[in-house]
Design a protein around this nucleic acid. Structure first.
Lengths: 347, 347
DNA sequence: TGTTAGCACTCACTCTTGCAGAGTGCTAAT
DNA sequence: ATTAGCACTCTGCAAGAGTGAGTGCTAACA
């Protein structure tokens, strides 16, 4: 049931042509453009067989053939050859990422931008989830009579703060004491653990004022932990899909945009995907059944894993897109390896 | 050249009908639905006059009439009557805003959400620009051997921090010294002033190490100031426009979405608008000539001004939308007056 | 003098028909 | 096994006819 050499050639030709022109491709044009040494009639016969095997479909009787999801899958797994990035694209990526090297989130955002600029598809990039990050210290600082700042610093350099307004008065000393006590309590625990674990009731002191202060601070503490744990999602080039024939119907476009508007749901789905370059084509996706989704992972500090991705029609230039994504993730991992432990604030 | 009472009635009827059904309205249907006590023929004569005066247009000879931008302007200025919000909407607004009262940015985001949920239009909300905010203090804190946190606190409680990686070693004392020195230098200056003003070269000490440290910190300081000055823009319900007949063409929809994708440009334009409820209809806008844009302002702490807005087709329910926006901005101003000086971190 | 009824006219929209073009599927010849 | 040839199918486009909604004008009316 394997495909013959010639069938593979024809299939590849059809995919190339269709990816290029977005129109069903007929036997005659294949015979003309790709020098296979056979006549259109022969190609027709092969195409008929390929269709029977599920690699091609037929919008209607007298239209040309269109590759099926199965065909793209075969192409991606066996036929596709790595493409080399143009020097121009490489330089673009290097320059842009270098420009924001010392601001973590900005770098990630730029990665998403680059991805959509170069591929002309919709793209996104996510910061790593820091569930595994551990708490380094917690500090409370006075701002004015009733306002203080709560700051949580993770060992990866991840910092988040919240301003909170207290209903009880405080003293500089009590703030320091509580901060130190919280640090002692939570130091070394993962954010996840700190958030989900039982709340330590023991303030380590009997001083009533401190206990009250603690009561005011804890809810914000938890909320801030939650905030630190949130993955940041940057999306770019969503409007690119309007230029793709597949999405020229308003309904399609709407569905597409709405999927992205639900950021939380989208983030969750993306986090579930495996590491490395993962391609899911058409029906292989549980939603967006007419899209291809490609994700790739980068590493921060060797362990934390972030993701970038592109979304487009199944009809896309798989070879180019995957090459770009590999280059980009390598570049990202590289910069985050050197500046290990680096992470800017959560703006 | 003033309009007669009857002409106003007819104009109002046409607007109501068109806003409701999005289809050109004819003389007969007006005569039937609105009890004006005159025949279609009379209405036709009046419509003809109204058209001559520029209040109505005519897609083609045998279509009904459509209100012009000028008609909406008249309606908004003179004819429109305040609508009372439904108890349901009021409750929705109160509840949702109350839920996030202690997180400034979250409240603003919720305001945008509410606006799009209730009006079914595209909406946005911006945090106030804090150009006028003054620096309260600056602090530098150690994280690890090469990493420190720079924190700038404004007098409005606005806090931003950045983690930065130093190329030179530091000591705890030098950090404290520099922090204090910077605080002395910048305290009381507005963010804008601090950012644009000349950089104070004098470190107030001759110690070489401190001067070097300062050299590493200043660029991040500037960048962080810039970040604090940035207005945060939250957009919601962009996909709502897909449900509006005016935007059922893919080109229109694309233009619309692209305008929002350019956030910086959009923000700048919105900042230029006056305070209070401002309505610009169709051609009155310099871009989006077929949209109506309504903005309204809320106040934080009495002085800082933030904006919310909706964007939709010129054919919208002006009375309802403005009522909702007034209610919402009053509510926002109210909560930010009570919790004056409150502002969460810049997550 | 303002209002109305009546009627011709216009235009968008829809449905049908016809036609050209692209492509297939089958058959018979090579 | 491959190919040429031909009938067949289906889409897309354009032209033409019919329909319906709505206007504009005129003449009659109160």
């Amino acid at each position: 049931m394997d495909l013959s050499e010639r069938q593979l050639q024809i299939l590849q030709a059809i995919i190339s042509d269709y990816v290029e022109n977005a129109e069903p491709v007929g036997s005659r044009s294949i015979a003309k453009k790709y020098d296979l040494g056979v006549s259109p009639a022969t190609i027709r016969n092969e195409m008929s067989d390929l269709e029977e095997m599920g690699y091609l479909t037929h919008p209607h009787t007298s239209a040309g053939r269109v590759p099926s999801d199965k065909a793209y899958r075969l192409y991606v797994d066996d036929l596709m050859q790595k493409k080399n990035l143009s020097a121009r694209d490489k330089r673009l990526i290097n320059d842009r990422l270098a420009a924001s090297r010392d601001e973590f989130d900005a770098t990630i955002r730029h990665a998403a931008e680059l991805l959509s600029e170069i591929t002309h598809l919709a793209s996104f990039a996510m910061t790593p989830s820091v569930n595994e990050d551990t708490i380094a210290f917690i500090r409370l600082m006075p701002v004015d009579a009733r306002t203080i700042i709560l700051m949580i610093v993770g060992n990866s350099g991840n910092v988040t703060n919240t301003t909170l307004r207290l209903s009880v008065p405080y003293t500089q000393e009590s703030l320091e004491m509580l901060g130190k006590h919280m640090t002692v309590t939570y130091k070394g625990r993962t954010l996840d653990d700190a958030l989900k674990g039982e709340i330590i009731e023991d303030v380590g002191t009997d001083i009533e004022a401190l206990s009250q202060l603690r009561g005011s601070v804890m809810p914000s503490f938890m909320k801030t932990l939650e905030d630190m744990l949130n993955v940041h999602l940057y999306m770019e080039g969503m409007t690119n899909i309007f230029n793709i024939p597949e999405y020229s119907s308003i309904d399609r476009a709407r569905d597409f945009m709405q999927m992205f508007a639900r950021k939380d749901e989208f983030t969750r789905k993306m986090l579930d995907r495996d590491e490395g370059v993962v391609i899911t084509i058409g029906d292989e996706n549980d939603s967006m059944k007419d899209c291809t989704l490609i994700t790739a992972t980068y590493h921060v500090d060797g362990k934390m894993v972030g993701k970038i991705g592109v979304i487009g029609p199944t009809r896309m230039k798989y070879d180019e897109v995957t090459s770009i994504m590999e280059y980009l993730t390598n570049n990202l991992s590289e910069s985050f390896r050197l500046t290990e432990g680096k992470d800017d604030d959560k703006k």
